[in-house]
Amino acid sequence: MAVGVLALQGSFNEHIAALRKLGVKGVEIRKPEQLQSVVALIIPGGESTTMAKLAEYHNLFPALREFVKIGKPVWGTCAGLIFLANKATGQKTGGQELIGGLDCMVHRNFFGSQLQSFEAELLIPKIAAKEGGPPSFRGVFIRAPGILEVGPEVEVLADIPTPSNKTVHSGPSVESQEENGGSENKVIVAVKQGNLLATAFHPELTADTRWHSYFLKMISDVSEDTSSSTVSQSTEDLHFSEPPIYDLPIYQQQ
């Protein structure tokens, strides 16, 4: 069993490293035909406009839409969330192509530029119920999108408070906004609809692999429905003879 990771640009190495920790092989996907060898796909974080351009150059969109349509599990983080959304605002002049499938409206760079990037503890009751561990998750938001509206079939997995007077380019840092409390506005940052999973933050940048393992369980569920093959979290696909792939450390505060 192999999980594809769209490797056009962005944090695909980080996703592959997280999958490796769970004993699953991640395969880099750059061309449409490579999609046929994988049971599920992760669309990583990165610049969504860049990834859309590269997907367009190599005619990946039809194959990606087909992949979503036939019900194979797909998980988008950050830029991947934008890809999966049916509608996106805050795009570049002229817009960008999306895969669609997830019934929601996404705002690109919802939180603003890099100075407004932040980390926050998110409450994730549904993930914790299935995967165990602490009730919260350290979400890393990098120029992150936010989900403004969701359709009736979309299940909300996490949200985060946001001030009602949100101004993108000025205003206080998000941390101080959180301290203000009081504000009732919340923005959705993680959703699931059928076999689609999407997060506005980056679980691949943290050491907590519960989101990855949650996604792998979604794959098992699908495989059990359709065929007898299950997600083997065995080591059969791990090539220890291959040269090791060195990756960046995961930074965390003490």
């Binding site: 640009q9 962005g10 944090s11 695909f12 830029a79 100075l115 980390e119 990098i142 120029r143 960046l248």
Partner: peptide, 27 residues
């Protein structure tokens, strides 16, 4: 360590600074 880098971590943790660079990878 507990040195210089964490001193300003309240405002912008090093992980968030590195995070954007990680999003630029392959670009």
């Amino acid at each position: 360590g507990n040195g210089a880098i964490t001193e300003t971590s309240k405002k912008s943790p090093f992980s968030v600074k590195v995070g954007l660079a990680q999003m630029l990878r392959g670009g």
